[in-house]
């Protein structure tokens, strides 16, 4: 891990001096993680590729604002997460799925929607299961979606997620809790 950090630090120094080729190493290192995040957030390979690409370019342009106290991956995740949330907000201007519904203890309208019908046979095929899971994630309001994706797809700690989203760990836990409950309604019976 130590050597890895050193490798990343050196690359960042070179990039800050303007060496673009040093950035190629970092893109290689994080491309799968960032692409996966974008794919899970947006649910469409084409959009995911565009978003991931944009995230990497934004990070490069703003490399001077990177604070080395933070893990580089955390910073990169933050850029990519914000980007995908922006895209999601622009995508659906007429449906407010993450509006909280009065008197339901923080559950949103989405969580109250009837779960999608899925037969057990459907789950047998792994690809179909993947799709089912993806569809369930896509139905989550963005604030729950981001924590679920960061936790279960990216396998990050609650501390890291809190840094990426700029939220207290307690808030991350609450959102995870609600996200898991909403997903349970969709996936728990499979």
């Amino acid at each position: 891990m130590y050597f890895m950090d050193l490798f990343i630090k050196k690359r960042i120094k070179a990039i800050q001096k303007g060496d673009q080729n040093a950035y190629a190493d970092l893109v290689d290192l994080y491309k799968d993680k960032i692409y996966r995040l974008c794919y899970r957030m947006l649910g469409n390979p084409h959009e995911a590729e565009d978003a991931a690409q944009e995230a990497f370019i934004r990070a490069y342009i703003h490399i001077d604002t990177y604070n080395p106290e933070m893990k580089f991956s955390t910073w990169l995740y933050r850029i990519a997460t914000n980007l995908t949330i922006d895209k999601l907000r622009k995508r659906k201007p007429d449906v407010y799925l993450d509006e909280e519904v009065g008197g339901t203890d923080g559950l949103t309208m989405q969580a109250q929607l009837p779960s999608r019908e899925a037969s057990p046979e459907e789950a047998v095929e792994s690809l179909e299961l993947q799709e089912t899971v993806q569809q369930a994630i896509e139905q989550l309001p963005e604030k729950y979606r981001s924590v679920i994706v960061l936790k279960y797809m990216e396998d990050l700690s609650l501390q890291e997620i809190s840094e990426i989203l700029g939220l207290p760990v307690g808030t991350v836990k609450t959102r995870l809790h609600r996200g898991r409950e909403a997903l349970r309604r969709q996936l728990g019976h499979l």
Partner: peptide, 18 residues
């Protein structure tokens, strides 16, 4: 159900960049 949900999520995690 929650356990199953989490397992499904982790199962679906793997995706690689093009």
């Amino acid at each position: 159900e929650l356990k199953k949900t989490v397992a499904f999520l982790q199962y679906a995690a793997h995706v690689a960049a093009p």
